[in-house]
Design a protein around this nucleic acid. Structure first.
Lengths: 234, 234
DNA sequence: TATGCGTCGATTGTCGACAGTTTTGGCTTG
DNA sequence: CAAGCCAAAACTGTCGACAATCGACGCATA
């Protein structure tokens, strides 16, 4: 009788992992805008609402703090991170840094499968644009960019992108409808994919810079326009 | 009487912050090699040794997990992360991505002060090379690269570099003496600084690629040579 | 002898509790 | 009426404890 000596692709066991669950729950509340930036996140309140003890909540909060979604003030608790225009600018600066690298690497390692997947994603965005569901459209947008990072073949780079996207979702959730014309959102990605398929680094870099530069300006302006609550010093 | 309506640069209060303390303690133990890669980090043992309860230890461990120093296996505890050659390659790939961006940005925003500070750092490295203290030399090396990232003016990018450096220290601590000739270590950085001062992006990128490409190969080879423990499937 | 099973010890995940601190609300005072 | 002060409530940081789970060891069996 033969023994199983190699992985066969068994489905991952679903671990209860209360901490992850709490982290997900809090993340959802933040990106959906139910927890506004600057709002206090009381451990006790969260624990009560979820019917669990405070220990897992604390650990989840620390997780989200490292992820940039929460800010911890010692002895005072956790607060939803508020992003200034400068923060958004930093985030987009990093996105450009990361996605330039990712796009070039993805272009070099592009397989027919990933290429087809990217094209399918663009089609999906196109279809989504016809329905009036901004949140889903934005999510599909991130997914497209994420797929490029995934195709780059560097796991840490992908995690980095996820972190940036996670932080940006704070403001995205606030804004609600970001693009006036969702159809443009889908179209805007076509040249980027074509550049990646063509495989000329210069063109790829130019496309990434242009694409993210536009988004950077738009989101930056939006954030700046809707920042009525300026932080006061104690 | 006037109230203080703006920050005056008061010295930060030294918070006890047991969690940070534990995190520092564990980090030190890891980078100094007292906790070897793959070693189990028992919460109870750490708590006993530090004379505290397990709760702060748990939170510190989660912190280090997010930082990439520890790996958590649910229901089995925390382990010191072991870096394969592929991991080191990923890390250097990201360093190139980040430091290219940082060097160009630093070049644009270069002030006489930061320029002087960078030159002083190179002098320091040169002086350190004469003493036989590899650990300090490597630390000064990282500090130089860190200063470039700091000069880029993006706080998140700096934190990102710190994270990469922190992960790389796992293997650096293992290796002990990395460079055969520490004098070369100092000299190798001169062209990079000169390119930044000259301010031509192309030259800067080429220098970063060359400098980190060399380090990538050297460290990669070293890690590959001293990886006796190959992971076995269960 | 090698393989599979059952039990035991050790460790993790979670909980409730306590002490110290921050915040809040009301009260006093100018 | 505004500003400062005081006490109570709420919250955080830390602790010790208990149940569930995992790994190791020994034993039965082919």
């Amino acid at each position: 009788m033969r023994v199983m000596s190699q992985p066969v692709g068994l489905p991952e066991v679903v671990e209860s992992d209360l901490v992850r669950q709490v982290a997900r729950s809090l993340t959802a509340a933040i990106v959906q805008g139910r927890l506004a930036p600057g709002a206090k996140v009381s451990e006790a309140a969260v624990a009560r609402e979820l019917g669990i003890s405070r220990a897992p909540v604390r650990e989840a909060a620390r997780l989200l703090e490292n992820q940039g979604l929460l800010r911890s003030s010692p002895r005072r608790g956790f607060f939803v991170r508020e992003l200034s225009a400068a923060d958004v600018d930093e985030l987009y600066d990093l996105r450009i840094c990361v996605e330039r690298h990712a796009a070039v690497a993805a272009s070099r390692r592009l397989t027919p499968e990933t290429r087809a997947a990217l094209r399918r994603q663009l089609d999906l965005m196109d279809a989504l644009a016809r329905e009036d569901d901004p949140a889903t459209s934005v999510e599909a947008d991130y997914q497209f960019h994420r797929m490029i990072c995934e195709a780059a073949g560097n796991g840490r780079l992908l995690r980095l992108f996820d972190g940036l996207a996670s932080e940006l979702r704070i403001v995205i959730g606030l804004i609600g409808r970001l693009y006036d014309d969702p159809m443009k959102l889908a179209r805007a990605h076509v040249p980027l994919l074509e550049a990646i398929e063509a495989g000329r680094p210069d063109a790829i870099l130019a496309e990434v810079d242009h694409h993210l530069g536009v988004a950077r300006r738009e989101v930056g302006l939006l954030v700046q326009s809707l920042s009525p609550a300026k932080p006061d010093v104690s």
